[in-house]
């Protein structure tokens, strides 16, 4: 009696759920055009990071263009190398997108992986971030030059917040180092956020950082910006001088900054590339998205294909050689046939 009741109950549930599943499947029946089913978007950094936020901000503007959902998944690890390889190894049918930052362009010289963006088609490079050099108001420096002079006067005493090799502070540090003696104590953190927290608490003395994460702290006066790593002033930080004011030789590195983009395997069919490029271009042109990018302290780019490739190549050439000259690479850029800028 009891057993038969159980069987009946189970049967009833089966009928209901299989009905629901059936409806779901028929709704997803394939047709001929791309995309016919939901697309998977792999984000190469963890939840809550800048790449994650940028990816989740653009996607809702793109989905209506494709009439499908883009399911986003964070797959961090190996500084983005794992995601990059994962997407690269997937069937090049345009159903797996890579939401990435600048990192793969450095994986070769850092000895992490041989796959960089030259293996991908750039659907859209959405934006590039601006870097600023910030310090704590308790410190005596009010300009980058004062800081640099102090570094020269007191070698190996001043602590610089960093985020590990290839990270933004590291590269900006290498740029500063190209100006001559630059002996600081780099203290690496897991990202911009923890580094800023340490700067606020006085555990490091200065920090090259993405503008996004520091903007509000600068505005509130809890941190002061010494220079913007750009060749002209930016509208959000009107009184802060561009780095080229004191160091004109920096022009050769600029524009430089982290960037965020969407990529697919180069082997994807043409119509897939075109559909995606159009959809993302449309999404990234949305005024609301542009406002978000500006609020985020970044510069909208919205470039794809050839134009994006050129940008990516220049970025790679500048950065890898900078790191190589600073002695921070495991393999020379020449191995990857990266030309010197």
């Amino acid at each position: 009696m009891k057993k038969s009741k159980l069987v009946l109950w189970l049967l009833l549930t089966s009928v209901t759920v299989s009905g629901a599943a059936f409806v779901h499947f028929t709704l997803e029946s394939p047709t001929t055009n791309y995309p016919t089913r939901n697309i998977q978007g792999i984000i190469m950094w963890g939840a809550g990071g800048a790449t994650d936020t940028m990816s989740r901000a653009i996607t809702p503007y793109v989905e209506p263009q494709l009439n499908k959902e883009i399911v986003l998944i964070n797959r961090s690890g190996g500084a983005g190398a794992i995601s990059t390889k994962y997407v690269h190894n997937k069937k090049p049918d345009g159903y797996t997108l890579l939401y990435g930052a600048e990192n793969p362009q450095l994986h070769g010289v850092l000895g992490l992986s041989d796959i960089d963006y030259s293996e991908f088609y750039a659907v859209n490079v959405l934006a590039r971030g601006i870097s600023v050099i910030v310090s704590h108001p308790d410190q005596p420096w009010r300009s980058l030059k004062e800081l640099m002079d102090d570094v020269k006067a007191r070698p190996k005493e001043i602590k610089m917040g960093s985020t590990g090799p290839g990270g933004l502070p590291y590269v900006v540090g290498a740029m500063l180092g190209s100006e001559g003696a630059f002996e600081v104590i780099p203290v690496p953190f897991d990202g911009d956020g923890p580094a800023i927290t340490a700067l606020l608490g006085g555990h490091v003395d200065f920090l090259p950082s993405g503008f996004t994460a520091t903007a509000e702290h600068i505005r509130s006066g809890r941190l002061i910006a010494l220079a913007v790593v750009n060749d002209k002033e930016i509208s959000l930080l009107p009184s802060v001088p561009p780095i080229t004011l004191d160091y004109p030789s920096f022009k050769k590195f600029l524009p430089w900054g982290p960037f965020y983009g969407v990529f697919i395997n180069k082997q994807a069919p043409r119509n897939v590339k075109e559909t995606l490029t159009k959809a993302f271009h449309h999404g990234a042109s949305n005024p609301q998205f542009i406002r978000f990018v500006n609020d985020f302290g970044a510069i909208p780019m919205n470039i794809s294909g050839q134009e994006a490739d050129e940008f990516l190549r220049k970025w790679q050439s500048v950065t890898t050689w900078l790191l190589h000259d600073a002695g921070a690479t495991k393999k020379s850029p020449t191995i990857f046939e990266i030309p010197r800028p």
Partner: peptide
């Protein structure tokens, strides 16, 4: 019966509601 039910429930929760691939 148990297998089918379990699968259906897991499929609905993970795949349909939370969009886990």
């Amino acid at each position: 019966l148990v297998s089918i039910n379990t699968l259906a429930i897991i499929y609905i929760i993970f795949r349909l509601i939370f969009k886990v691939i």
